[in-house]
Measured scan of single mutants.
Amino acid sequence: KRPMNAFMVWSQIERRKIMEQSPDMHNAEISKRLGKRWKLLKDSDKIPFIREAERLRLKHMADYPDYK
């Protein structure tokens, strides 16, 4: 399994928030909203998620050196 990218790290947190506020919302609608919100997010606000994704990528490389 591939490591999460910055969007996936961010969306995992945000998806939980949306599901708590709107438990009846369909997953497809949540995904659309997350995509739009990520695009509107300032680059500076994305930095912590980019760093976490990089950390996960490096850990994945160390844990699975033969992964292609």
Rank of each mutant, 00 (worst) to 15 (best):
F7L: 06
R15L: 03
V9E: 01
M8H: 14
I30H: 00
E54L: 04
A53W: 00
W10M: 00
K36H: 10
K17V: 06
E54F: 03
Y64G: 13
W38F: 00
D63K: 10
K17W: 01
S22G: 05
S22F: 15
F49H: 10
L34N: 03
N5F: 00
E29F: 01
E52H: 02
L34M: 01
E54W: 02
K1E: 06
N27W: 13
S22A: 12
R57W: 06
W10F: 10
K39E: 14
R16H: 08
P23G: 04
E52T: 04
R15H: 05
R33E: 15
E29T: 06
M19W: 06
L56F: 03
M8D: 14
D63H: 09
D43C: 05
K1P: 03
L56H: 05
N5P: 03
Q21F: 05
M25S: 05
R55D: 10
L40T: 14
R57E: 11
R2K: 10
E20F: 03
E20M: 08
K39T: 08
R15V: 04
R16N: 07
K46W: 00
D43S: 08
D63C: 05
E20V: 04
P3V: 10
W38G: 02
D45G: 04
E29L: 03
A6P: 11
D43N: 06
K36E: 15
L40Q: 13
R16K: 14
K42M: 04
E52R: 06
R57H: 01
A53H: 05
S11E: 13
K32M: 14
N5H: 03
R16T: 11
R37S: 10
P65N: 13
F49Y: 12
M4S: 04
W38T: 02
A62Q: 10
K39F: 04
H26D: 15
H26I: 11
R57Y: 04
P23A: 03
H26Q: 15
K46E: 01
E20N: 04
M19D: 04
R37Q: 11
R55M: 08
R33V: 15
I13C: 06
P48I: 11
R33I: 12
D66Y: 03
K46Q: 02
P23Q: 04
P23Y: 01
S44L: 04
Y64F: 10
A28L: 09
K1T: 05
L58P: 06
Q21E: 12
K17C: 01
D63I: 09
P48S: 04
K59Q: 14
H26Y: 02
Y67R: 14
L40N: 14
H60G: 14
L40C: 12
I18W: 01
L40G: 11
I50N: 07
D24L: 07
I50K: 05
V9C: 07
A62T: 13
V9F: 04
P3M: 09
Y64P: 13
P3R: 10
E54M: 04
K68P: 15
M8S: 12
D24I: 03
P65W: 04
L34T: 00
K32E: 15
D66A: 09
M4N: 07
A28E: 11
K1R: 06
L34C: 01
S22Q: 11
D45S: 05
L56P: 02
L58G: 14
L40D: 15
S11D: 02
S44Y: 02
K36F: 12
D66I: 10
K46I: 03
S31W: 11
S22D: 13
L34K: 00
S22I: 04
A28P: 07
A6S: 04
K1C: 08
G35F: 14
I13N: 09
P65G: 12
R2C: 12
S44T: 10
Q21C: 03
Y64A: 11
K17L: 08
G35N: 13
Q21S: 09
R15M: 09
K42A: 12
A6K: 01
K46H: 00
K32H: 10
R15D: 02
K59G: 12
P23H: 03
A6L: 01
D63V: 08
S31Y: 07
N5S: 14
S22T: 06
L56A: 05
D63A: 12
V9L: 14
Y67I: 15
K32R: 12
P65Y: 10
M25G: 02
R2S: 13
P23N: 03
N27Y: 09
M4W: 10
S44P: 04
M25T: 09
L41Q: 01
N27M: 12
E29V: 02
P3A: 11
D43L: 10
A53E: 03
L41S: 01
V9M: 07
I50Q: 13
P65H: 11
E20K: 04
M19T: 06
I18V: 04
Y64D: 14
W10T: 00
L58I: 10
D45W: 06
K46D: 03
I30N: 00
K36R: 12
A6M: 00
K1H: 11
M61E: 10
R55W: 04
D63F: 07
S11N: 02
L56V: 06
N27T: 12
M19A: 13
F49L: 03
W38N: 01
M25I: 13
S11P: 00
Q12D: 15
S44V: 09
D43G: 07
K39A: 15
M4R: 01
E52Y: 02
W10H: 02
L58Q: 14
R33L: 15
M4T: 11
P65S: 15
K42N: 08
D24E: 12
M4P: 13
R55C: 06
D63N: 11
H26G: 11
K39N: 09
R2W: 09
R55N: 08
S31P: 02
L34Q: 03
I30C: 07
R2Q: 12
M8N: 08
D63T: 11
N5K: 03
L58F: 11
F49S: 01
K68A: 04
H26W: 07
I18Q: 00
A28Q: 10
R37T: 12
P3C: 07
S11Y: 06
E29K: 02
I18Y: 07
K42G: 07
I47R: 08
S44R: 07
I13R: 05
A53C: 01
K59E: 13
R55P: 04
R57D: 05
Y67C: 12
N5V: 01
K46F: 00
W38S: 00
L34H: 01
H60L: 09
D24T: 08
P3F: 09
G35H: 15
P65D: 15
Q12C: 12
R57L: 06
I47L: 14
R37L: 05
W10Y: 03
K42I: 03
M8V: 09
Y67Q: 14
G35M: 15
M19R: 08
A6N: 00
R37C: 05
N5I: 02
M4L: 11
E29R: 01
S31R: 10
R37F: 02
D66V: 10
L34I: 11
K17Y: 05
A6C: 02
